[in-house]
Structures are given as C-alpha cells and as structure tokens.
Deep mutational scan, measured.
Amino acid sequence: MTYKLISNGKTLKGETTTEAVDAATAEKVFKQYANDNGVDGEWTYDDATKTFTVTE
C-alpha cells in the first residue's frame, strides 16, 4: 500500500510517499525520514487516507 507523509516542519515542508506492508512499517520509514531531515514534532495518522502528518 502507498502511505503519505505531510511534513509541516520549521525547515522542511512538503509531502512524500512510501510503499509499505502496513502503517507501522510506513511510520518507521517516515520517522527515520523526518529524523534525517531534522524534523521533530507531533505526529498524527489518518487511516482513511493512509496519511501521516508531522507538525513542528
């Protein structure tokens, strides 16, 4: 399945996607992506749209 990340960081804003077997796997990928880009904030997940959002 395709999962989307919306980043509302102070230094990184935008969207990216990943293919993953489940939401937990996608979350690990996205949290590593955010960490690699210096984004640390509040996370939410919408199962209906398969979208994670991180806001700093």
Results as ranks from 00 to 15, higher is better:
residue 29 V to M: 09
residue 30 F to G: 02
residue 10 K to H: 12
residue 10 K to M: 11
residue 9 G to L: 14
residue 46 D to A: 03
residue 51 T to C: 04
residue 8 N to I: 15
residue 20 A to N: 03
residue 33 Y to L: 11
residue 32 Q to I: 09
residue 45 Y to R: 01
residue 30 F to P: 00
residue 29 V to T: 10
residue 4 K to W: 13
residue 34 A to H: 02
residue 18 T to S: 04
residue 7 S to A: 14
residue 30 F to V: 00
residue 32 Q to H: 06
residue 6 I to L: 08
residue 23 A to P: 08
residue 20 A to R: 02
residue 21 V to G: 08
residue 43 W to N: 00
residue 31 K to Q: 07
residue 31 K to A: 04
residue 41 G to N: 02
residue 55 T to F: 10
residue 36 D to F: 09
residue 21 V to H: 12
residue 49 T to F: 05
residue 14 G to K: 12
residue 52 F to P: 01
residue 21 V to I: 13
residue 21 V to R: 12
residue 39 V to Q: 05
residue 52 F to V: 00
residue 45 Y to D: 00
residue 45 Y to H: 00
residue 15 E to K: 07
residue 3 Y to R: 02
residue 28 K to I: 11
residue 25 T to S: 13
residue 53 T to L: 07
residue 42 E to W: 12
residue 52 F to K: 00
residue 56 E to F: 10
residue 14 G to E: 12
residue 4 K to T: 14
residue 47 D to H: 10
residue 35 N to K: 15
residue 20 A to T: 04
residue 39 V to K: 02
residue 46 D to G: 01
residue 9 G to Y: 07
residue 54 V to A: 02
residue 13 K to T: 11
residue 40 D to T: 14
residue 31 K to V: 05
residue 32 Q to S: 08
residue 48 A to N: 11
residue 49 T to H: 05
residue 43 W to R: 01
residue 33 Y to R: 04
residue 7 S to P: 04
residue 3 Y to H: 03
residue 34 A to D: 01
residue 51 T to E: 03
residue 45 Y to N: 00
residue 24 A to W: 09
residue 36 D to A: 12
residue 16 T to V: 14
residue 49 T to D: 04
residue 54 V to R: 01
residue 53 T to P: 00
residue 18 T to D: 02
residue 55 T to E: 06
residue 37 N to T: 05
residue 13 K to M: 11
residue 22 D to G: 03
residue 47 D to A: 13
residue 45 Y to V: 00
residue 49 T to S: 09
residue 52 F to A: 00
residue 28 K to T: 08
residue 37 N to M: 14
residue 48 A to W: 07
residue 19 E to F: 15
residue 30 F to L: 05
residue 40 D to L: 13
residue 37 N to S: 07
residue 1 M to A: 12
residue 36 D to E: 13
residue 35 N to V: 13
residue 8 N to R: 11
residue 51 T to Y: 02
residue 26 A to V: 02
residue 14 G to S: 12
residue 37 N to Q: 10
residue 33 Y to V: 06
residue 24 A to C: 13
residue 15 E to H: 10
residue 34 A to M: 11
residue 51 T to M: 03
residue 8 N to P: 05
residue 29 V to L: 12
residue 32 Q to G: 06
residue 13 K to D: 06
residue 13 K to F: 11
residue 16 T to I: 15
residue 9 G to K: 05
residue 19 E to N: 13
residue 11 T to W: 13
residue 31 K to L: 07
residue 56 E to D: 09
residue 32 Q to V: 07
residue 46 D to E: 06
residue 11 T to N: 12
residue 49 T to E: 05
residue 52 F to S: 00
residue 45 Y to A: 00
residue 42 E to R: 09
residue 42 E to D: 12
residue 42 E to P: 04
residue 44 T to L: 08
residue 26 A to R: 01
residue 44 T to Q: 09
residue 13 K to A: 10
residue 17 T to S: 10
residue 35 N to H: 15
residue 40 D to E: 13
residue 28 K to M: 12
residue 19 E to T: 14
residue 35 N to G: 09
residue 45 Y to P: 00
residue 46 D to K: 03
residue 50 K to D: 01
residue 52 F to G: 00
residue 46 D to F: 04
residue 6 I to N: 04
residue 10 K to R: 13
residue 23 A to C: 13
residue 35 N to F: 15
residue 1 M to L: 11
residue 2 T to L: 13
residue 8 N to S: 09
residue 28 K to F: 09
residue 9 G to V: 13
residue 44 T to F: 10
residue 38 G to N: 09
residue 43 W to G: 00
residue 43 W to V: 01
residue 48 A to G: 07
residue 31 K to R: 15
residue 47 D to F: 07
residue 47 D to V: 09
residue 48 A to P: 06
residue 27 E to N: 05
residue 2 T to K: 10
residue 24 A to L: 10
residue 5 L to M: 07
residue 45 Y to K: 01
residue 32 Q to L: 09
residue 36 D to G: 05
residue 50 K to W: 05
residue 46 D to N: 09
residue 44 T to S: 13
residue 40 D to W: 15
residue 29 V to G: 03
residue 12 L to F: 15
residue 50 K to N: 06
residue 17 T to H: 09
residue 44 T to H: 11
residue 13 K to P: 11
residue 7 S to V: 15
residue 39 V to R: 03
residue 18 T to L: 13
residue 19 E to D: 10
residue 22 D to F: 03
residue 3 Y to I: 03
residue 24 A to M: 10
residue 29 V to Q: 07
residue 31 K to P: 00
residue 48 A to K: 12
residue 52 F to Q: 01
residue 20 A to M: 03
residue 37 N to R: 13
residue 35 N to A: 15
residue 45 Y to T: 00
residue 26 A to K: 01
residue 29 V to N: 06
residue 45 Y to I: 01
residue 5 L to Q: 01
residue 47 D to E: 14
residue 43 W to H: 00
residue 24 A to R: 10
residue 28 K to D: 05
residue 20 A to P: 01
residue 22 D to T: 05
residue 51 T to S: 04
residue 19 E to P: 04
residue 27 E to A: 11
residue 24 A to D: 09
residue 22 D to A: 03
residue 52 F to H: 00
residue 13 K to I: 12
residue 14 G to L: 15
residue 38 G to A: 06
residue 54 V to S: 01
residue 51 T to D: 00
residue 48 A to D: 11
residue 11 T to Y: 13
residue 15 E to G: 07
residue 30 F to I: 01
residue 55 T to P: 01
residue 26 A to G: 01
residue 32 Q to C: 06
residue 30 F to K: 00
residue 50 K to C: 05
residue 43 W to I: 03
residue 33 Y to M: 07
residue 19 E to A: 08
residue 12 L to D: 05
residue 35 N to S: 14
residue 12 L to S: 08
residue 46 D to T: 04
residue 43 W to Q: 01
residue 11 T to Q: 10
residue 35 N to Y: 15
residue 7 S to D: 04
residue 22 D to M: 03
residue 25 T to Y: 07
residue 32 Q to D: 07
residue 4 K to N: 05
residue 55 T to Y: 10
residue 1 M to K: 12
residue 35 N to Q: 14
residue 50 K to S: 05
residue 38 G to L: 06
residue 11 T to P: 05
residue 4 K to A: 05
residue 54 V to I: 13
residue 37 N to I: 11
residue 11 T to A: 10
residue 23 A to N: 05
residue 51 T to L: 03
residue 30 F to R: 01
residue 28 K to N: 07
residue 8 N to M: 13
residue 9 G to C: 15
residue 6 I to E: 04
residue 1 M to T: 14
residue 46 D to Y: 04
residue 25 T to W: 07
residue 2 T to C: 14
residue 42 E to Q: 11
residue 3 Y to C: 03
residue 5 L to E: 03
residue 54 V to T: 02
residue 13 K to S: 11
residue 39 V to A: 05
residue 34 A to I: 07
residue 38 G to W: 04
residue 40 D to P: 04
residue 25 T to N: 07
residue 7 S to W: 15
residue 5 L to G: 02
residue 33 Y to W: 15
residue 19 E to R: 14
residue 33 Y to I: 09
residue 6 I to K: 07
residue 37 N to A: 10
residue 17 T to C: 12
residue 48 A to S: 12
residue 21 V to P: 15
residue 7 S to K: 04
residue 26 A to L: 01
residue 41 G to C: 03
residue 14 G to D: 08
residue 42 E to K: 10
residue 33 Y to F: 12
residue 24 A to P: 08
residue 39 V to N: 03
residue 31 K to I: 06
residue 37 N to H: 14
residue 18 T to F: 11
residue 36 D to N: 09
residue 39 V to S: 03
residue 48 A to H: 09
residue 22 D to L: 03
residue 45 Y to G: 00
residue 50 K to Q: 09
residue 13 K to H: 10
residue 19 E to M: 14
residue 11 T to R: 10
residue 30 F to N: 00
residue 21 V to A: 12
residue 20 A to E: 04
residue 49 T to Q: 06
residue 53 T to V: 07
residue 15 E to M: 14
residue 6 I to Y: 06
residue 22 D to R: 02
residue 28 K to G: 06
residue 19 E to V: 15
residue 10 K to E: 08
residue 45 Y to S: 01
residue 44 T to E: 10
residue 40 D to N: 13
residue 50 K to G: 05
residue 41 G to P: 02
residue 35 N to W: 14
residue 53 T to Q: 05
residue 46 D to M: 03
residue 18 T to K: 04
residue 12 L to R: 06
residue 15 E to T: 13
residue 10 K to A: 11
residue 54 V to K: 01
residue 24 A to H: 09
residue 9 G to P: 05
residue 22 D to E: 04
residue 44 T to K: 08
residue 44 T to G: 06
residue 22 D to W: 02
residue 37 N to G: 04
residue 49 T to R: 06
residue 20 A to G: 03
residue 47 D to L: 06
residue 9 G to I: 14
residue 39 V to G: 04
residue 3 Y to G: 02
residue 22 D to Q: 03
residue 50 K to P: 00
residue 14 G to I: 15
residue 53 T to S: 07
residue 8 N to E: 08
residue 37 N to L: 13
residue 21 V to M: 13
residue 44 T to W: 07
residue 56 E to G: 06
residue 28 K to C: 10
residue 56 E to T: 08
residue 5 L to F: 08
residue 37 N to Y: 11
residue 21 V to F: 12
residue 41 G to F: 04
residue 32 Q to E: 08
residue 18 T to Y: 11
residue 16 T to S: 09
residue 14 G to Y: 14
residue 31 K to H: 08
